[in-house]
């Protein structure tokens, strides 16, 4: 087995194991830590796919920002007495959920294996995914989208502050 294949299997297995633990852990904080494992192993796979920029974004944005935000909110909203690690009580609801996930995954697998026959492996240019070529491609072709994304982030920021703000009327009542 080539070293690249071994690399893929290690991190793919780690991502799958951690993904399953995310949805089966009893404590939400363990779910968050397993989610961190998923993010890091996906970041390793991005390096295997010659996308070092995306790997860095994955670590800084997901593991660094989003997960920290989730853990903050988790510590704010968790009370020691509630049993929030549980699954849905309704058994038929749980069965329906599992069935939906398995069926949709199977369906997509069947559909998409037909597509992969069309995609032939083209020779990979040496600078695919390097910082320079990524920035050139992004700012030459998608400058407007890039600026709109920054406006979207600003809107989300203002919206988040406004929603999470304490309602003064509710406090005085």
């Amino acid at each position: 087995m080539a070293i690249g294949d071994l690399y893929f299997w290690i991190f793919a297995g780690l991502a799958l194991l951690a993904g399953i633990r995310v949805i089966t852990s009893k404590e939400a904080i363990y779910s968050a830590l397993w989610l961190l494992t998923v993010f890091i192993s996906l970041s390793a796979l991005y390096i295997h796919l010659r996308a070092p920029m995306i790997a860095i974004f994955q670590v800084t944005i997901y593991a660094g920002a989003i997960l920290v935000l989730i853990i903050f909110v988790l510590t704010l909203l968790t009370r020691p007495d509630d049993k929030m690690g549980e699954f849905q009580h309704n058994v038929s609801f749980r069965g329906f959920g599992a069935l939906t996930g398995i069926l949709s995954t199977g369906l997509m697998l069947v559909m998409i294996t037909g597509i992969t026959e069309i995609v032939k492996k083209a020779p990979v240019p040496a600078d695919l995914g390097s910082t320079g070529s990524f920035a050139k491609y992004l700012l030459n072709n998608y400058l407007i989208h890039f600026e709109i994304a920054s406006v979207l982030l600003l809107a989300a920021l203002i919206c988040a502050i406004y929603i999470a703000k304490k309602d003064k009327k509710a406090v005085t009542q």
Partner: peptide, 30 residues
Amino acid sequence: IGLSLILFGIGTIGFLVRRNAIILFMSVEL
């Protein structure tokens, strides 16, 4: 593609079977 779809399926199942809203968020991230 197989890895990605299985991860997506795990996220779907997690979203549908858990009760904790924050774990639902984590499933969406997955």
